[in-house]
Design a protein around this nucleic acid. Structure first.
Lengths: 153, 153
DNA sequence: TACAAAGTATAGCCAAGGCTATATTTTGAC
DNA sequence: GTCAAAATATAGCCTTGGCTATACTTTGTA
């Protein structure tokens, strides 16, 4: 029908901001998403081990709001990633690597929640939002957060 | 071999914190992930329309760092979601709904970047991290951010 | 005007992350 | 010691979001 668009297809093309930069940025975000779930699992497993003495697929599933089948499948991924060990019907355990990740995640989570709270976000929202936000906070930003909290006393 | 675990399988079970709450929290995070990508696309399309006068699959793909095929497929999803319209070989346009979403996303993005910057995060990191963070900031938190920036002048 | 290059679309593949339904194992109670 | 219930595992299916390879339009230029 009409072809108002497409007339001069490269008009303004060179005016676009550096695509490379943004592409890399988005790319990183995508990668972060794939690790976010594993981080959640590792965090939760460490939590369950500490509070209940063991981490069972059923508890993990319930806490994450997914089916046990899904939990089991993801635990298999954790094993493949070298973050956890598990033998059939015998519970899940974190490897050293998994424990290290859990520690890092826990610290980061705390920091994000504290910053949100310091900014005036209600505790409940801070906890809920941190669950999503924490996976996308870089080391640099994390340092700035810590600094901010320290300065603020 | 050993069965140290599993001995008393419900020990401490009732000591676990309210699973319902956390399950819902994680559940929300999952849902947010599925909309995050569409938000990115809508945001970018609006940006391209404004800066280049049109939004073409190839440009979208390049800016997002994905293949054109992936971009085309996701654009189809945008159409299904009622956020965009597109006819073969004729570019992508936002619907009213899509434009409204783009506006909301843009405002939110700005707010997140500004808050990060105010906290001392370097501009580049702030931009990069905001790309991931913004999708997980609730309305309540957004309000707190705005308030914080206002109070801080 | 014809044609090559650029852009666009489609098909078919893969892994992740979700589900339900169907085994199988373990456990605790009888 | 049996056996039912609970937990666990497996199989098969779906959607999303990525890819490459291949085919088809559009466009600008020779």
């Amino acid at each position: 029908m009409n072809d108002t668009i497409r007339r001069k297809r490269d008009a303004g093309a060179e005016k676009l901001p550096a695509e490379g930069t943004q592409a890399r940025r988005f790319g990183k975000t995508r990668t972060a998403q794939s690790t976010a779930l594993l981080e959640d699992y590792v965090e939760l497993i460490a939590d369950l081990m500490a509070s209940a003495g063991e981490a069972r697929p059923t508890d993990i599933a319930r806490r994450l709001g997914v089916s046990h089948a899904t939990a089991v499948k993801t635990i298999a991924r954790l094993k493949r990633a070298g973050l956890a060990t598990a033998r059939p019907y015998r519970g899940v355990f974190l490897t050293e690597k998994g424990q290290a990740l859990a520690d890092r995640v826990r610290v980061r989570h705390r920091l994000v929640v504290d910053v949100l709270t310091a900014l005036g976000v209600p505790a409940e929202s801070a906890e809920a939002d941190a669950e999503g936000i924490e996976h996308y906070v870089s080391e640099v930003t994390l340092k700035a957060f810590a600094q901010f909290l320290r300065a603020r006393g």
